[in-house]
Amino acid sequence: MLIPIRCFTCGTLVADKWDEYLKLKEQDTPPEEIFKRLDLERFCCRRMLIAHVDLIDDVLKFSRQQ
C-alpha cells in the first residue's frame, strides 16, 4: 500500500526517503549512489524501498463514503 514508516528489521526511518528515491530512480542514478545519498547503509533498509509496491493510488479511486 504505502511505504512502511520504518525498516522491518532494524527500525530505521525509511518513509521520508520514498519521494527522493523515486526522483533519483527516474534520473537513472546508479543504485549504489541512490542509497549512499539516502544514507541507507544496511541491506535490510535498502530492500524496504526496492521491494515496495505503491498501491495506494489504485485504492484511492474507491474512497470510503461516510
Partner: peptide, 15 residues
C-alpha cells in the same frame, strides 16, 4: 516528528 516528509496517508477529494 523527526522528519516533515513522512507520508501518513493519501486522501481523495472530499475526504
Amino acid at each position: 516528528p523527526v522528519s516533515d516528509k513522512i507520508m501518513i496517508t493519501k486522501m481523495s477529494k472530499g475526504s
